[in-house]
Amino acid sequence: MHHSTTHLSASVTVHAPIQKIWDYWTAPEHILRWNNPSDEWKTTSVENDVRTGGKFRYVMETNDGGGFTFEGQYDEVIPFEKLSSVHPNGRKTVNTFSVTADGVTITEIFEPEAGVPAADQQAFCAGVLKQFGDYVARH
């Protein structure tokens, strides 16, 4: 990671076995259903090749027709422990999965995108993690 960059992070603890958490986090049919920070967003397309060197591409859209594509390539995949990826513009994101007495804590640490307020990016990430936790709890 670039030492000059301020990193943002968010985390959530989910009460479920690590196998289920990993499956729900990485399987496209699940990602389509939880990968949004709020009801104003939806994920309409997911490709996810979960292996070192594999690529991912999530198309995210807002109800009013906006949106973006979240894509990149995994540079490190340790099943049930870590997913590290690099986006086309060189930004890195690292997700770690820690099994605790209370469940599994997922922590996402990422380099913020230039030109977008950091607080907005942090809130977006935290919102997605909360949605993931809620989704796992319901299914």
Rank of each mutant, 00 (worst) to 15 (best):
N95Y: 12
Q121G: 08
I21N: 08
Q121L: 03
Q122C: 07
E61P: 06
R51V: 07
V116F: 10
E113W: 02
G127V: 10
A10L: 06
N36K: 14
R138P: 00
V12E: 03
S9R: 07
A137H: 10
P79W: 02
H87Y: 10
F70K: 00
A10C: 03
V136M: 00
S4F: 06
F68N: 13
N35A: 02
V77D: 10
M1A: 14
D120Y: 15
P17N: 13
V50T: 15
Q121S: 03
V12Y: 01
A123H: 14
S84H: 15
N89A: 09
T107G: 00
T93P: 00
W34E: 04
D49M: 07
A101Y: 08
T96G: 00
E61K: 12
N89K: 13
K20N: 09
V99W: 04
A16N: 11
K82C: 07
A137P: 06
S85Y: 04
W22K: 14
H30M: 01
T62L: 09
R91H: 13
Q19K: 15
D102P: 01
D134N: 12
G54H: 02
S4G: 12
T52K: 09
H7V: 12
G65N: 06
V59D: 14
F132R: 01
S85M: 15
N89M: 14
N89I: 07
Q121K: 09
P88D: 04
G133L: 03
T62D: 08
W22R: 03
N89Q: 13
A126S: 11
V12D: 05
Y135V: 06
W34S: 02
G53Y: 00
T44L: 08
V77N: 06
F70Q: 03
P37Q: 11
T52H: 07
W22F: 03
I18G: 04
K130N: 15
K42M: 05
S11G: 12
W22C: 04
I18S: 05
V77H: 02
P28A: 00
C125I: 06
K82P: 02
W22I: 13
H2E: 13
S84P: 02
E40V: 08
Y58D: 10
V77F: 06
